[in-house]
Design a binder for these strands. Structure first.
Lengths: 122, 122
DNA sequence: CCGCATCCGTTACGATACTG
DNA sequence: CAGTATCGTAACGGATGCGG
């Protein structure tokens, strides 16, 4: 019956901007979705599913809902039906690019000895 | 019986440096610990516990173990006993500072409308 | 078909009590 | 003080179903 079991609410652990950013984005999937939308501009649900990390369908749907709620992504056609209605970053979401760039730079430098296959491009 | 239930192993989801960074640091606590070690240089177990986000003891111990395993933090006295033996960032961990700075900047700009109490300092 | 929601087994997390 | 043991809860992951 209740199709929206998750109350889209976040418990802010503190007033610190770092912990608050992590309250919203500090999981293994949100920034992967945002990475895809940075590199591809627009991406449908099934295209996001086809990324090499293999997110599962329910997790993807939940993350897309949260990211939409907090104005980080949006539908390309705001009033269209879901089918083939891709997502894209809002201005706010696009502003996350420097965060991902810094993370990628760090990983390439400091993770290589633990994960040899890591590549040097985003 | 088995006191070390976690095999300190990471499943790298892909060769992407972003997803790989998140495989290691993509949770709600690791970067909070690193934030504390950036702002305080050294920090004991109980000092880390006293941060306003209130991490629980078992989670803190587990994160410290993983971060140590991957060379991001280390004991101030490598051969000393645990008691009052603080942690600090390694060179690798200190290199995460730009990631946190970018995240803090983003949060201050884009999270304020959802979390009014957010502060403007790291 | 595509975009989900639902069900369900497994894993991670969180609070608390407890030990060396 | 620095953790570990325990146990209840929430999140995840895969499979499946169903409407548009």
């Amino acid at each position: 019956m209740d199709t929206q079991p998750d109350v889209e609410m976040i418990e802010w652990r503190s007033v610190c901007p770092i912990s608050s950013g992590l309250d919203l984005l500090g999981d293994k999937w949100s920034l992967v979705i945002i990475r895809d939308l940075i590199t591809h501009e627009t991406r449908t649900y099934s295209e996001l599913l086809s990324s090499p990390e293999h997110i599962s369908t329910n997790i993807l749907a939940a993350r897309l809902r949260v990211l939409t709620t907090f104005g980080i992504i949006e539908r390309v056609d705001p009033d269209g039906v879901a089918r083939n209605n891709a997502f894209r970053l809002t201005r706010s979401g696009a502003a996350l690019r420097p965060v991902l760039e810094q993370l990628a730079t760090w990983s390439q430098t400091h993770l290589k000895r633990y994960h040899e296959a890591i590549v040097n491009v985003v």
